[in-house]
Structure formats: C-alpha cells, structure tokens
Amino acid sequence: MDIAEVAAQSGVAPSALRYYEKIDLIRSTGRNGLRRQYDPDVLHRLALISMGKTAGFALDEIAAMFRLTPTLELPRAEIAARAAALEEEIARLETLARMMRHVASCPEENHMDCPRFRTMLRASQRAQTRS
C-alpha cells in the first residue's frame, strides 16, 4: 500500500505517517518512486496508535510499548491502570454533569436555598480536597 492509500484508509494524514515512521511507531517496506510503501498490517498498528492516543498515552509512551516486543505484546498492567484512571475520570465527569443539570433546572431562585445543591456542593468540595 502506498502512503496515500494508507492515509485514506486510516484517516491519518501523510505528514503524520511520515512523523510516525520517524519516531519508529510504524515502518515503511520501501518506496515506489518517492512514495513510501507500507504493509497492510500498518492499518492495525495505526488503529492501536489512535486508541492509545485517545486513552491519553503520549506518542513516546506508545512507541515504548511497541518496542517491547516485535509481536506487539502490550503492557497489560499499564493499560489496566490507564483504564482505571479513565473510569475514575468518567465517574467524576458524570457527577459534574448531574450537578450542572441540577443547577440549570433548580427551582430555587437562590441556589444556596436548595438543599440538594448544597449537598452536591459539599460533596464536590470534599472530592477536591482528596485530589
């Protein structure tokens, strides 16, 4: 596959593909004229890179994972820890969204007169002091 085809199928810009190759995230198999050529398996690797970036891993962290073994055995403990951190963040954001929905629809003119709002406010303050 040439670089244009990989870019079209993966949604990754050719400039990003060249950068990924520079930092050893992917490898081209050669050139056809000036165009880099890639093995079709590069699409799997690009999907893993995208998933890692979405999960919050930096490119250098992803590159380090890829260098661990040639068969791409990912560090399960590190990934499990990141998943746990994402779950904690999701729970925090869901709580924040519930609080904001209540603030937006609270029947009290003054939010401080609302017992539910005050309870949520105290819970939010406690959560911030734990962080």
Rank of each mutant, 00 (worst) to 15 (best):
S28R: 04
S28T: 03
S28H: 11
S28Q: 09
S28M: 03
T29K: 09
T29Q: 13
T29R: 12
T29H: 04
G30P: 02
G30W: 03
R31D: 10
R31C: 09
R31K: 15
R31A: 09
N32S: 11
N32E: 14
N32L: 13
N32I: 08
G33E: 06
G33F: 09
L34N: 14
L34I: 11
L34Q: 12
L34M: 09
L34E: 09
L34A: 09
L34G: 12
R35F: 09
R35I: 04
R36L: 14
R36N: 07
R36H: 06
R36A: 05
Q37L: 15
Q37C: 08
Q37H: 05
Q37F: 06
Y38R: 06
Y38E: 06
Y38A: 04
D39E: 10
D39W: 05
D39T: 03
D39N: 13
P40L: 02
P40S: 05
D41R: 09
D41T: 10
V42F: 10
V42W: 08
V42A: 08
V42Q: 10
L43E: 07
H44T: 15
R45D: 10
R45I: 14
R45L: 14
L46P: 05
A47L: 08
A47Y: 06
A47M: 10
A47R: 13
L48T: 08
L48F: 05
S50N: 15
S50T: 14
M51S: 08
M51L: 15
M51K: 11
G52F: 00
G52N: 03
G52R: 00
G52P: 02
K53D: 00
K53P: 00
K53Q: 15
K53R: 15
T54S: 09
T54P: 00
T54M: 11
T54F: 11
A55P: 00
A55D: 02
A55Y: 06
A55R: 01
A55W: 06
G56Y: 11
G56L: 06
G56K: 05
F57C: 01
F57M: 05
F57T: 01
F57E: 02
F57V: 02
F57S: 02
F57N: 04
F57H: 00
F57A: 02
L59Q: 01
L59V: 07
L59R: 03
D60W: 08
D60N: 12
D60F: 03
D60C: 01
E61Q: 15
